[in-house]
């Protein structure tokens, strides 16, 4: 049962955070030294026709009107999904660019999160049982080492070893980069799907291998601590079956700390996915953000910032509601 009060406080937090994100997005171009439109023009965009400065400024909503009037226009545009034009992908709009590339990232992120949380929970449960043995200490040390590896560096190493170097009899097992082969046509056809999946393998492995050990360690610690809980002793005293205790007492209470960890780590996985996309030239939103940043495509950078921030805020909000449903005590905090 979710109480009204809890729902309202969590909603207020989500809305307040969204507002802060929007304000940052609005103020940054206006408060930073130098006119971003000029900067943008001065760098790469020589091909923009003369007189485009005015157009660019209106892109940013940079007028001489007072700030609150500018904010009104900005907010109105935002509500209509109007994020302006991308410099780099001109004449495409920011919304169009994001819509094209978001699915790739969602696929990569979703699959990676699912696989690594599944692996983490299963392996963590096993190491939880093994707790104290030599094998378990070794495994835990390896996991700690793996979580210490920077995502993008691990991705580069995988690319080097498994894609560039692993060629047997002229057959390359993993493509070096890209999201699909140039010989297939995007769409719902088997060659394209196979090619896309093949190209997503190394990026997926990079994320999963660096993400799942953290989950496994949390799951292990939770399992070990749970066995010391009084209600587990009580459950044994009641003469319940081991399987029942694991299911209704241990697992049920482990869900909260473990899912908290997964949600917290989600932010890192998003960042990790972006880096991995850059390394493998995988055309998701992270790669586009990289292009936008390096080519000073400010409208696109802003747009992607907003979309990611909103996604994470909504994910957090959903997770808050899920916790409250799973553990009635959460609402008291």
């Amino acid at each position: 049962m979710i109480t009204k009060r809890y729902l309202i406080t969590r909603s207020i937090y989500a809305i307040a955070t969204t507002f802060v994100a929007i304000v940052i997005n609005f103020l940054l171009p206006r408060l930073t030294p130098g006119n971003p439109a000029v900067t943008a023009l001065a760098t790469t965009y020589h091909y923009l026709p003369p007189g485009k400065l005015k157009l660019l400024e209106s892109q940013f909503g940079l007028t001489n009107a007072p700030l609150y009037v500018q904010f009104e226009t900005y907010f109105w545009n935002l509500l209509h999904g109007n994020l302006g034009f991308s410099f780099h992908y001109y004449p495409e709009t920011v919304t169009q660019v994001i819509a094209q590339h978001l699915p790739w990232t969602l696929f990569l992120l979703g699959t990676a999160t699912l696989i690594s949380s599944f692996l983490g929970v299963v392996i963590g449960r096993i190491t939880g049982w093994m707790s104290g043995t030599k094998g378990e200490t070794t495994l835990s040390s390896i996991f700690i080492a793996l979580t210490s590896l920077p995502y993008f560096w691990f991705a580069i190493i995988l690319q080097l070893v498994l894609a560039v170097d692993l060629v047997i009899n002229g057959f390359r097992f993993f493509p070096i980069n890209g999201s699909y082969s140039v010989f297939v046509t995007p769409g719902v056809n088997l060659p394209f799907i196979i090619s896309a999946l093949r190209h997503s393998l190394l990026p997926l492995i990079s994320i999963v291998v660096t993400a799942f050990p953290g989950f496994a360690l949390t799951m292990r610690n939770t399992m070990v601590n749970l066995n010391k809980e009084d209600y587990i002793t009580m459950a044994k005293a009641k003469g319940l079956r081991e399987s029942h205790i694991v299911k209704k007492y241990a697992a049920r209470n482990a869900v909260l700390p473990v899912s908290t960890h997964i949600v917290l780590a989600f932010g890192y996985i998003v960042a990790g996915a972006f880096f991995v996309e850059i390394v493998f030239g995988y055309q998701g939103i992270g790669y586009v953000l990289y292009e936008a940043v390096t080519s000073q495509d400010f409208p696109l950078t802003d747009g992607i910032f907003l979309v990611i921030t909103l996604t994470v805020i909504i994910a957090n909000f959903a997770a808050d509601l899920l916790y409250a449903y799973l553990d009635p005590r959460v609402q008291l905090r």
């Binding site: 307040a16 940052i24 171009p29 932010g267 960042a271 990611i308 921030t309």
Partner: peptide, 21 residues
């Protein structure tokens, strides 16, 4: 603090770095 904690760090890091010197 709560609001700052809910704001995802990485995108914020990128956008701030993109605009500041």
């Amino acid at each position: 603090v709560d609001i700052l904690l809910i704001l995802p760090g990485f995108p914020l890091l990128v956008i701030l770095s993109a605009y500041l010197p």
